[in-house]
Amino acid sequence: MIQIQGQSFELWENVRDGWSEDDFKDRYSEILNKYDFIVGDWSHNQLRLRGFYENSRKKVAFDSKIDTLEDYIYEYCSFGCSYFVLKKVRQSDDAE
């Protein structure tokens, strides 16, 4: 379980050993609090973070849903890069 800025996440996927808690915490911004998933990918020794929503969310762009993760990795990330996916752990009073 990863805790940051009042949010809890679990490591959902860790590809090519991309996960680094210290680097994630250094890079995290409160703008990411609204997302259900955070994807971190490494390019040129720098961590990039991007948020995605659950597929069931309405009124969000299709390319912002987690189902498009594979397309994002192929189109926007360095070939063969390491990356990780964190899933937000919802508290019982957060669920909508």
Rank of each mutant, 00 (worst) to 15 (best):
I66Y: 09
E96A: 12
M1V: 10
Y83H: 10
I2N: 07
F62C: 14
Y28R: 00
K58E: 10
I73G: 13
E70F: 08
G40H: 14
C81W: 14
K58C: 05
A95Q: 10
S78Y: 15
Q5T: 10
D23V: 06
D41K: 06
R27T: 01
K65L: 04
Y72D: 09
F84D: 01
F37W: 14
Q46C: 09
D94R: 06
S92M: 06
H44Q: 12
Q5D: 06
V15F: 08
K87A: 05
Y53L: 07
F52D: 01
C77Q: 06
F24D: 00
D36H: 12
D63Y: 11
Y28W: 03
D23F: 10
Y83T: 06
K25D: 00
K65R: 08
Y53P: 01
W19M: 02
L49G: 04
L86V: 02
W12L: 11
H44A: 13
D41V: 10
E75Y: 15
L86S: 01
L11T: 02
V60W: 13
Q3H: 09
G51Q: 07
Q3I: 12
V60D: 10
F37G: 01
I38W: 12
F52N: 01
Y28P: 00
S29F: 06
F9H: 04
L86M: 04
D71F: 10
N55R: 15
V39C: 02
S29H: 05
Y35I: 00
C77D: 10
S78E: 13
G6W: 15
L69E: 05
Y76W: 10
N33F: 11
G18H: 07
S29Q: 04
V89Y: 02
E54R: 15
E70H: 09
D67T: 07
S92H: 05
V39E: 02
K34L: 08
T68V: 11
M1I: 05
Y72H: 11
Y83P: 02
E54A: 14
G18Q: 09
R90Y: 08
H44R: 13
Y76P: 14
G80S: 05
D94M: 09
F52Y: 08
F79I: 15
F24G: 00
Q5E: 11
K88R: 09
A61I: 02
V15T: 12
I4T: 11
I4E: 05
R16M: 14
T68D: 03
Q3G: 01
A95R: 11
I73V: 15
G6R: 15
E30R: 01
I73K: 13
S8M: 09
G6S: 14
E54V: 08
I31A: 03
S92W: 05
S43A: 14
Q7H: 14
L47H: 11
D22M: 04
F24I: 00
W19R: 03
R48Q: 02
S56A: 15
D93Y: 13
S29G: 02
A95P: 03
E10I: 08
Y74I: 06
D36E: 12
F9G: 00
G51A: 02
Q7M: 13
R57Q: 08
R90N: 09
